[in-house]
């Protein structure tokens, strides 16, 4: 019970400090410290609740137990990460986004196809595509190729829709200007339309990072070799070893945020001119 009291006390103090910090002018320190303190508070509350009320570790392991498990299973976590993220998610992401980008450029010269593809693409992007997973596992086997295929299918349409919209983003005046220069289609594409499309392209790329990881993990629930993050989650859940499951989730969260962060950094470098990126 002491633990629970301590956790509640910590919560109160942390909230009070955060209220104080929030009243100060916004700076680098406060905009880092406040969410960090909030996150730590959540962990302390979790730990305190588990210890204080003696929650069965089968239901909810304490953060400390998860951290210990994480530290002792790094080799397993690494093989799972390599199998699911690098082989499955990343390859599918590159193929899917690349194919969508090329398709968008291919249909760019045909307004007819664009008009058809945009609504269909928007429609498909809202569908539960993840349901394709069992079918693709049947077609491509249990190993990473099928995970990669699921990711390709999942990221293709969101990426396509964003790129097609991006290519239409340059305004009329700028296009007319290109016209007065007598620019050829490839010149206008390279010098105006593609740079103008970049904020949209990166928006698509960012959405797809999360989708890729979800696709690769969920596809493993439908069958996989005896490694991979989705495989580990589903088998360890079956054995009620929840600390391992949480360790895998931590890996997934870290991988997901790092992946997103990388794409966001490239975006910052490429689209530094866009209003959303200015005023660092």
């Amino acid at each position: 019970m002491n633990w629970a009291v301590f956790a509640l006390g910590f919560w109160g103090v942390a909230w009070w400090i955060n209220l104080r910090l929030a009243k100060m002018p916004r700076s680098r320190v406060t905009s880092f410290a406040i969410p960090a303190l909030f996150g730590i508070t959540l962990l302390v509350l979790w730990e305190g609740a588990v210890r204080g009320f003696g929650v069965n570790p089968v239901l909810l392991p304490a953060p400390s137990a998860i951290a210990v498990r994480f530290a002792t299973s790094i080799p397993i976590l690494w093989t799972d990460f390599a199998q699911t993220f690098i082989k499955g998610a990343l390859s599918g992401y590159l193929i899917g986004c690349g194919a969508a980008f090329l398709t968008a450029i291919a249909v760019d010269r045909s307004p007819f196809l664009q008009k058809g593809l945009l609504p269909v693409g928007n429609f498909v992007a809202a569908l539960p595509i993840i349901g394709m997973a069992p079918i693709l596992v049947m077609w491509f086997g249990f190993d990473w190729q099928s995970k990669s295929a699921v990711v390709v299918v999942m990221v293709f349409f969101p990426m396509l829709v964003n790129t097609v919209q991006g290519l239409q983003a340059s305004d009329h005046m700028q296009r007319d200007l290109m016209h007065t220069y007598g620019a050829s289609y490839p010149q206008a594409l390279m010098r105006l339309r593609l740079p103008a499309a970049m904020p949209f392209v990166f928006n698509g790329l960012k959405i797809c990072t999360t989708l890729a990881l979800i696709g690769a993990i969920v596809a493993e629930f439908f069958g996989s070799p005896i490694k991979g993050m989705g495989f580990r989650i589903s088998t360890e859940v079956g054995r009620l070893a929840l600390d391992m499951v949480w360790a895998e989730i931590a890996v997934a969260a870290l991988a997901g945020s790092a992946f997103y962060g990388c794409v966001a950094m490239i975006e910052k470098a490429v689209t530094f001119w866009h209003p959303s990126q200015r005023r660092g």
Binding site: I217, M229, I233, V237, I249, A253, S257, F259
Partner: peptide, 13 residues
């Protein structure tokens, strides 16, 4: 940040 995390993967658990 939580939007970048594959939340769906926790679903079965």
């Amino acid at each position: 940040a939580s939007q970048t995390i594959p939340i769906l993967a926790i679903a079965p658990m």
